[in-house]
Simulated assay, not measured.
Amino acid sequence: MKAKILTLAAITLLAVSCGTKKTASTPATPATPAVTETAKAVELTPELAAGKSMYENNCAKCHKLYEPKKFTQEEWAPILVRMQKKAHLDDTQMASITSYIHSQL
């Protein structure tokens, strides 16, 4: 009985440690080049930096962040409207996020 419990514990520990390591390393790798590319694309003014900060802090709470260039300006419009309601952002905050995303296109 002890052997079964120890074997089960070892398998569980192995599965958890592999899953955690994989999850932790996956988001860190693409985030670093994206920040570098974004910084090179447009010099961020204080307003755009605030928009970027709001985008990263509010949107990443619920899902992964999309590269602004993944969608066109027309495709971003309905996405931002829908997300404004879900994230409970006011018009000023949303305008700042929208300005940041449009500056990166």
Rank of each mutant, 00 (worst) to 15 (best):
Val81Leu: 11
Ala31Ser: 13
Ala3Trp: 09
Trp76His: 00
Ser96Cys: 05
Leu8Thr: 02
Ile11Asp: 07
Thr7Tyr: 03
Leu44Val: 06
Ile11Arg: 06
Ser96Tyr: 02
Leu44Gly: 08
Glu47Thr: 04
Lys22Cys: 08
Pro30Met: 10
Ile79Lys: 13
Ala9Trp: 05
Thr32Phe: 07
Ala87Lys: 08
Asn58Arg: 13
Leu80Glu: 09
Glu47Gln: 06
Ala31Phe: 11
Thr72Val: 08
Glu37Phe: 03
Leu80Gln: 14
Thr20Phe: 15
Val81Lys: 12
Leu14Met: 09
Ala28Pro: 05
Gln73Glu: 15
His102Asp: 12
Lys70Pro: 05
Glu75Val: 10
Pro30His: 06
Glu56Pro: 00
Asp90Gly: 06
Trp76Met: 00
Ile97Gly: 07
Gly19Lys: 00
His63Cys: 12
Lys4Val: 00
Thr23Arg: 15
Ile11Glu: 11
Lys22Thr: 14
Ala50Trp: 00
Lys52Phe: 12
Leu89Ser: 03
Met54Asn: 01
Asn57Ile: 07
Thr72Trp: 03
His63Gly: 12
Lys85Asp: 07
Ser17Tyr: 11
Thr36Trp: 09
Lys2Trp: 03
Glu75Met: 11
Ser17His: 13
Lys4Trp: 00
Ala95Cys: 01
Gly51Cys: 09
Glu43His: 12
His88Glu: 09
Leu65Met: 12
Ala9Asn: 04
Ala41Tyr: 14
Ile97Arg: 09
Pro33Met: 11
Ala39Val: 09
Phe71Asp: 10
Pro33Gly: 07
Glu37Lys: 03
Cys59Asp: 10
His88Trp: 04
Ala28Asp: 10
Glu75Cys: 07
Ala95Val: 04
Tyr100Trp: 01
Met1Asp: 02
Glu74Asp: 14
Glu43Leu: 13
Cys62Lys: 13
Pro46Phe: 13
Tyr55Glu: 01
Lys52Leu: 15
Thr12Tyr: 06
Leu6Arg: 06
Lys40Glu: 14
Tyr100Pro: 03
Lys21Thr: 15
Ala9Gln: 03
Pro33Cys: 02
Ala60Ser: 15
Thr72Glu: 07
Cys59Gln: 13
Leu89Gln: 09
Leu89Thr: 02
Ile11Trp: 08
Cys59Val: 06
Tyr66Leu: 15
Trp76Gly: 00
Pro33Val: 11
Ile11Tyr: 10
Ala34His: 05
Ser25Glu: 14
Ala49Thr: 01
His88Thr: 06
Leu6Pro: 01
Met1Pro: 01
Gly51Val: 05
Cys18Lys: 04
Ile101Gln: 03
His102Pro: 01
Pro46Trp: 08
Ser103Met: 07
Tyr66Pro: 07
Glu43Pro: 06
Thr72Leu: 15
Lys69Ile: 11
Met1Leu: 05
Met83Pro: 04
Ile5Tyr: 08
Lys61Ser: 00
Ala10Thr: 10
Leu48Phe: 05
Asp90Trp: 05
Ala15Tyr: 08
Val42Asp: 01
Thr29Ala: 13
Thr26Asp: 13
Lys22Asp: 14
Tyr55Phe: 14
Leu80Arg: 08
Pro30Thr: 08
Ser53Phe: 11
Ala15Gln: 06
Lys86Asp: 04
Met94Thr: 02
